[in-house]
């Protein structure tokens, strides 16, 4: 089934509004993620499935962007940085489905000579990617730099970034947190995927994060919270976050998600952080997710 919105490229400033349509996109993106990691038997399905609503909301509803004419500088466009680069499967699917590159290219994920490297990179010239990520903790600094460039260029569009909760154990995140508020980077909306899981187990066991809201507030950020697996809430909270921009403070959204959301046997288990499903598991998972836009 192909809906009208996918037969023509998404146009700048003409976001999809219907949550039903967004939910259909989410189902297809989840199918893409599972098939992408299954084919090379490699990748990170857990966090990818958990952040699907967030990425779909950004690219199909929130951001002003131009998939058909990608430019590195992204002048007068909103810009997104994926700092937790290991959930690349979700991002690639959303980029392809929103028109940055051919959807069929998703089949090359993690294979030799692909532009869809295991972790995102500019090195292969893939449209939609502006910096390499994967070595954790670096994306917030980059997002701060681009937000500053927008200010210097008198460009009023926003910068978004996404980070894992485990990722914020990296010290550089807190350097960037201090920098962003000190330099009043108020055109930045960062989000933490607060799924409570990392490779070695629960974040609370590996390296507890403490009171995240208090920490980000103490670092001078405007902090919002949301359930990242409810598309209506994701849209409304990010829209609310946009209203908080331009007021002298960077904005943080603490986003509660379920790792592996949408696939019953993957939900809330760190075991699916970086493991691909086998043939049987793939069929089981796909049966839970309707094919809405056509598999690649």
């Amino acid at each position: 089934m192909t809906t009208e919105i996918f037969s023509s490229p998404i146009k700048i400033n003409s976001p999809v509004k219907s949550t039903d349509e967004l939910k259909k996109i989410c189902s297809q993106v989840r199918r893409d993620i599972l098939r992408m990691v299954h084919a090379p038997q490699s990748g990170h399905p857990g966090g990818s499935l958990g952040c699907t609503e967030f990425l779909v909301a950004l690219y199909f509803s929130i951001m002003k962007h131009n998939p058909k004419k990608f430019t590195m500088n992204g002048i007068v466009e909103d810009i997104f940085f994926l700092s937790n680069g290991h959930i690349s499967a979700a991002w690639y699917s959303v980029l392809a489905r929103s028109g940055y590159f051919p959807i069929k290219e998703l089949a090359t994920f993690r294979k030799l000579n692909t532009r869809l490297q295991g972790h995102p990179t500019t090195h292969e010239g893939l449209e939609g990617i502006r910096v390499a990520s994967g070595s954790l903790g670096q994306g917030m600094s980059v997002a701060c730099g681009t937000a500053l460039a927008k200010k210097l260029n008198k460009d009023s569009q926003l910068v978004f970034s996404l980070h894992g909760d485990g990722e914020i154990q990296e010290g550089q995140i807190w350097e960037a947190a201090m920098f962003a508020s000190a330099r009043k980077i108020d055109n930045l909306i960062s989000t933490i995927d607060w799924n409570g899981q990392q490779i070695d187990g629960a974040v609370d066991k590996v390296m507890p994060l403490g009171d995240l809201k208090a920490k980000w507030t103490a670092f001078g950020w405007d902090v919002l919270e949301m359930n990242g697996n409810k598309i209506e809430e994701v849209i409304s909270v990010i829209e609310e976050a946009k209203k908080h921009t331009g007021k002298g403070k960077p904005v943080m959204i603490l986003m509660k998600t379920e790792m592996g959301h949408g696939v019953d046997f993957m939900v809330n288990s760190h075991k699916w952080h970086g493991v691909a499903p086998n043939d049987e598991q793939l069929q089981n998972a796909l049966a839970q997710l309707p094919e809405t836009l056509g598999d690649y």
Partner: peptide
């Protein structure tokens, strides 16, 4: 905070 400085510099290039 040199690590952040390098990242901020990388980000500044995106925007020319």
């Amino acid at each position: 905070a040199e690590a952040n400085m390098i990242g901020v510099a990388a980000g500044l290039t995106i925007g020319g």
